[in-house]
Amino acid sequence: MNPAIQIDNGRDSETIEEVVIRIEGLRKTYGEVVAVDGVDLTVNRGEVFGILGPNGAGKTTTLEMIEGLRKPDAGEIEVAGYDAVREAEDLKRIIGVQLQSTALFDYLSVEETLRLFSDLYGTDGSPVRIQQLLEIASLAKKAKARVDELSGGQQHRLSLILALINDPRVVFLDEPTTGLDPQARHNVWDLVRKIRDEKKTVLLTTHYMEEAEELCDRVAIMDHGRMLVCDTPLTLIRSLKMDATVLASVEADSGEQLEVDLDLLPGVTSEEREASDLRLQTENVQATVTSLMSLAAERGLHLKDLSVRSVNLEDVFISYTGRGLRD
């Protein structure tokens, strides 16, 4: 077993960031199972920070220890100056939480739910604030609808704005789009961007790469209870020293097949073929594409649907864990 992997990004950045969440040596076991195995993490003020990992990686357990729902076995958690274990009650007032299960009271309306939680937080649930929240979640027309009459996406959005009802300094979102269709997912993403625009710090977990790339200023990749790496999505992708994936399908005039070993083209690191479809990974997209074009011209081949896909976080995840996120 390795000692905990130290992740520290504040030090090499030039600007002085205000640290809002600081976690050191966090550990949690359930019987024999080590759910969280020595996690260190810092999140700066105003950033959207994502913990990316497959199901069972320990993301939710980590988040729930910060929220005060679970007690860590070891380690320290400090959020906005509060000790998350010893000062959990004070901390609750300044954080907003969306849990993985977004169930609420079925028989209350959207507006009543917001007002109830506003009272539970002891904040003034002013009609203006509630209206504002309803609008950013596009739920204004549903204010009088009962929670059990909402669609899954609407319930998600309601539980998201509930996380804002106390005007929190830090917002925790646990898999905010899991189980949503693409349209609903994009709506939630818009909502998260609006939260960022309110200058709140957001810590979210997800197992969708696109989500992490779309929303997060920084991403930590987590697997088997450990943080493997943590940086901006761009830096992580660049660190792979891989340029892109080139995709094309090949058609020959005479029905002739492409028989060249494409591995030999400049820049190509790996090659996959299925019937006429090509998939090349390259560390030099320009050289690879140029030589592929001239090869096609020499042999009288037509390249159809030529496209270049840049490297994404999935590739990063695979390179660190040796398997796909959805495996």
């Binding site: 929220e67 005060g68 729902l69 009650e89 609750k92 007032r93 954080i95 939480v97 849990l99 993985q100 299960s101 977004t102 169930a103 609420l104 009271f105 939680f117 539970l120 937080y121 002891g122 539980s159 509930l162």
Partner: peptide
């Protein structure tokens, strides 16, 4: 129902 669907946990993260 409130416990199994996680509503109690949602209450638990409020100061109430």
């Amino acid at each position: 129902v409130l416990r199994e669907r996680g509503v109690l946990r949602r209450i638990k993260v409020t100061p109430f």
